[in-house]
Amino acid sequence: MKLTLHVWRQKNAASQGKMERYEVEANEHMSFLEMLDVLNEELIGKGQEPVAFDHDCREGICGSCGFVINGVAHGPMPGTTVCQLHMRHFKAGDELYLEPWRASAFPVVKDLVVDRGAFDRIIASGGYISASTGSAPDANAVPIPKKYADLSMDAAQCIGCGACVAACPNASASLFTSAKISHLGVLPQGEPERRERALRMVATATAEGFGNCTNIGECEAVCPKGIRLEFIARMNRDYIQASWLQRQESSAGGVG
């Protein structure tokens, strides 16, 4: 099948980019990224620079890949990252627009590649349970009801791809941030740091330049891992509670 692609080409973070038009011959068994591989091989053959895009595992779990296809993050199939999106969902003659995630917190590095370091910094600001190696009690010492373990797992499935930010009209990182806050917050192990975690992560997300949540739900709809809006409510709850009860950290405490 012959396809027409309009791809965002941008040499580096400092330069201006623009949409470029390409034609490519694909077949229905290819994955979307394999179709781009074919395009890139042709471009290299002509001595042109291939389209840069992030990808690694190509099985939908590492979270490296992702761009916007015809206005939808990760393309038209729900619950599917672009690496697992197959060309049989498109038809000959389709015209496709490929654009990078758009957010000031995700500056474009090149073509469809963006810098998602802001996500790492959000995690660094509190997205963990402080459990230094060697200090753990027996794994079965604290039973965790299955439904909480499952809920935690639901939130923990986030792959950090950034589609939620890309799809949000406010470029908000609320779904991402709330997924980590919920993953850790529903577990008894995560309870001691629950409030501080919410305060710090939410503040960091804003400081990184992400927008606010307007409860629109586009993030949930494009999330390849089915992370739910429910977790944003949980984050808000933790945050409100924490703000209400916040007090100055005691200098006698262990936070050094």
């Binding site: 309009h6 965002w8 916007v68 015809n70 206005g71 627009y97 758009r102 629109i216 586009e218 709809a221």
Partner: peptide, 9 residues
């Protein structure tokens, strides 16, 4: 975005 298509909102 040049093209934007809301999915669910």
């Amino acid at each position: 975005y040049v093209k934007l298509k809301p999915v669910t909102s």
